[in-house]
Amino acid sequence: MTLIVRRAAYRTAMFALALGLVVVIWETYKAVGPTDGGKLLGVRILPRTSEYAMPHVWDMLSRFGRPEVRGSDRTVLASVLAGAWYSFRLSVAGFVLGGAIGVGLAVLMARFKLVQRGVLPYLVVSQTVPLIALAPLVVSWGGKLEVGPFVWPRWLSASILGAFLAFFPVAVGTLRGLAAAPAASVELMQSYAASWWKTLVKLKFPTAVPYMVPAFRLGASASVIGVVVAEISTGLKGGIGRLIIEYAREATGDPAKVYTAIFGAAALGLTMAGVVVAVDVFVMRNRPKESTT
């Protein structure tokens, strides 16, 4: 237990150090870099360091505490938190949906080699479709969908796109994990005349866990990306994606503001990853420690 705590403390310290380093680099470049950027043969190769392009880190942070619009009593922090929370819930929905589909597909592919040969190439191709192009399509399909009292909510389209990105790493990781059971263990289950289903539950899934955990971690951040991109490209209200566009429009007058929304998106991704890591530590607590890194 102390080992886990010490490792967590170490990782947090390294994270804080890396963050501090980024701030130092940002501010150093801002101090010494050319205000109008550096040009070589008419091509800009060094970014501008003006207040407009690179606000001070403390300006970004203090912007959180000030009102969102002049005269309002709602701070930027409140808005960003609300937006991040909204997007977080959509991402979780997308992640759960994508995770379930991914695991389901992996089980089908592991069970039927024919399915694996038929489906796997299409899964790979599916991930090459640009999300920006797909987002409006999903929204318009969803808009046409109405089954009885069920009316497709707009947010569901964003979650679907999150799921669309999340299911792939989960499917591939789980498929690899399901194939990882040692031949001797498979034979042992065979010697007990265990059914395919029993073998899956008692042997294959437990051996797959170390492969599934990193896959889920990828899936979680993929879901966040899917949701935020879908929010941006469809203009869905309420989430962090919408805040990024809105604040970016004000960038000329209020350059620090857009960074607050970007911080919000980063915090959202970190939170998702953090949740999965916590689950990881929990499910792997009784496994041999060498094989978990």
């Binding site: 001797a184 042992l188 008692k202 042997l203």
Partner: peptide, 25 residues
């Protein structure tokens, strides 16, 4: 019942749970 050349116990089960496996099935 069979005992193989390698022990082949399941890492994620306690020793008792390993012994119980054939009984569970």
């Amino acid at each position: 019942g069979m005992a193989f050349q390698q022990a082949g116990l399941f890492d994620w089960r306690t020793v008792r749970k390993n012994i119980e496996l054939p009984l569970e099935l």
